[in-house]
């Protein structure tokens, strides 16, 4: 299959396998949906922010395998990624600070029961846990994708990326 001619053609224009591209194009949204389900389902079954974040990051790994690292990297640019890094940690720490503010300065950091939500104390704790799991999921997703992009980024593909 891989004769010299086709390799040079591949060097000019990145044309992957049709089957792999189509299947991954179909599968990626479902993987991401499943990741969101795992993040939100963490309170009533196995799962949680970290697992969902890793699955979400793994969908970008599939994108890299199917479309090549340059196209996948353009789909998830570095500026967005680095912003998402800290967004998750900020959500987590911000929920904690919100608890201090809502408890009128009683220094109840990360005590979600004091969030002013229109439900009773125990259910507020469950909702606070969901919020911080969203934060953990965002951070983990961005970090896994960014680590994979940076580890797999080759020099020759960088030049190719410059052309596109």
């Amino acid at each position: 299959m891989n004769t010299g001619k086709s390799e040079t053609e591949e060097g000019k224009k990145r044309s992957g396998d049709v089957i792999v591209e189509t299947i991954s194009r179909v599968m990626v949204p479902f993987i991401q949906l499943f990741a969101l389900y795992v993040i939100m389902h963490g309170s009533s079954g196995p799962g949680g922010g970290f697992q969902g974040g890793v699955i979400f990051g793994a969908s970008f790994v599939l994108l890299v395998i199917a479309f090549g690292i340059v196209n996948a990297g353009n789909r998830f640019p570095e500026a967005v990624n680095t912003a998402l890094f800290s967004t998750g940690v900020y959500i987590y720490a911000g929920v904690g600070l919100l608890c201090i503010i809502c408890s009128l300065g009683a220094a109840q950091y990360l005590n979600y029961g004091f969030l002013s939500l229109p439900v009773h104390f125990e259910e507020r704790r469950a909702l606070g846990m969901d919020f911080i799991e969203i934060g953990v999921g965002i951070t983990v997703m961005a970090v896994i994708a960014e680590i994979f992009f940076n580890l797999a980024w080759k020099k020759e593909e960088k030049k190719e990326g410059g052309k596109e």
Partner: peptide, 26 residues
């Protein structure tokens, strides 16, 4: 321990394998 198993299947068999192969390609 279903949570730990889920995490290990996602991380150990998925993410860290991807990292190691990506590092091996360089």
């Amino acid at each position: 321990s279903v949570d730990v198993a889920f995490t290990e299947a996602a991380v150990g068999a998925g993410a860290s394998t991807a990292f190691l192969i990506a590092a091996l390609s360089r």
